[in-house]
Each structure stands twice: as C-alpha cells, then as structure tokens.
Amino acid sequence: MKAPLLRIDGLVKRFGGLTATDCLSLDVAEGEVHALIGPNGAGKTTVINQLTGELHPDGGRILLDGTDIVGLPVHARVRMGLARTFQIVQLMGSYTALEHVALAVQANAGHSFRFIGDARADERLTGPAREILSRFGLATRADRPVAALSHGERKQLELAVALAMKPRLLLLDEPMAGLGAAESAQMVELLQSLKGQFALLLVEHDMDAVFSLADRISVLVGGRAIASGSVAEIQADPAVRIAYLGEGDA
C-alpha cells in the first residue's frame, strides 16, 4: 500500500494539567477527505495547530510524505504544500479580497524581496487571483476591503486564499461555522467539486456536510480518537452515538 500523505503518530499536547491531544494517531491519504469531528473542546483545533506548526507537540511525530515536519516553522510547512483555514478568520482588515488572494499567489511564486514594481498592477498576481475569486462568486467583491465583507464572504475568502496556494493537503477548521443554510450548501458544493485535487482534513460540526463530503471520519473526544471509519461505520458506532452524535437526539 502507498504511504499516506499525512501520518500523525502518537501525538501528545498538554496545556498544564490538561491533555488536549492524547496519543493521537491518524492518517490522510492522497486525495482523501478525512473528517475530524468531536464535541467542543475535544482538541480539534489543537491538532490542526500542531500540524501547521503554530503549536509544538509534547510528543509524537507528524510525517508529511514520509518526512517528520515537527521541527519545521509554519511557513516552511506551508511551502511543502500544507495550507489551512482558520476557525476564526484571520485576514488583513485594510486589504481587499483581491489583495489577499494575490498575496497568496505571490507567496507561491517565490520570495517577495522585490522592492520596486507595483504589486497591485502586476497581472501575474492579480490575474490568477481574480480567477480564483470568481470561482467563489466573489468577483464583484474583489476590490472591497475585507472589513466590508460579510462573515460568509470572509469564510469563503479564507478558502480562496488557501486554494491560491495550490496545496497538497488542506486543513479546514470549521469552514461552515456561522454560515447560513444557503452559504453552507454552496460551500459543500464547492468542496465537492474540488474533491480529489488535494487531500483534506476537515474539522466541522455540520454533520450533513461531513457525511456528504468525507471518505473517512475520526471522532475525537478529550483529545483521544474514540473511533475511525467510513461514514456508515461511524453512523453505526454505538460509542460514537453516546459520546457525540447522540448528544441532541438520544
């Protein structure tokens, strides 16, 4: 069997007395959508932050394509093809939507030690950026500062920025959170259409979205994976039903 694109092996993260990631192992294959679900405070974002390098694990390994990336800084991991979106959007208030995506295109094109040319007038940056924005239906919003965008549009912009980086593995931290029903459906459809172009680790509370997108689901409770399997397997798993899915309608 082919080695997975991402392999997490015995990952441990403690915050003081709290073990937020408790000896977690999971993997994501090339092109696969692996959903990571679990109740609030289960440690999902903490896992993502360790994958990107914002948090340093207390133990375990993270292998991307067979290389241990635990020692690498955030930007170096990104350059290896790891992109993310944030649960709470992280954008530059005064920059337009176009400038955000263009900056990602720029970062992908190599170093930015270019001091003279006008970046905003550079077709090599704005061309691809406009194309990506229009794919998200954000073309008419391109020249607005993000401060003037709706919450849903900002969530979409986060994803557009991530896609502009042409990732091999995309980490999405609750892309539907706070979206209306129509926006959510649009987001699911978009992700559906991109499926297979890159591997996806999807953290999401919206179960309909998870069930329609995921190839595999892992359930995280208290930092520990209590179950992992196909959509059908997870839906049928009694432990999962008690710990998580059953919460509302048991």
Binding site: Y95, L103, Q106, F115, I116, L125
Partner: peptide, 19 residues
Amino acid sequence: SRFGMVLGAIRQNDRRVAA
C-alpha cells in the same frame, strides 16, 4: 511593491502571513 504588500500584511496579521 511585493515587499511592501508583505510588510503591510505582517503589520495587520502576522499569523495569516505565516499561514
């Protein structure tokens, strides 16, 4: 310039820039 765009982005959100 490209450098200036990076610099302005760092001022506003260095987490995003690293990401």
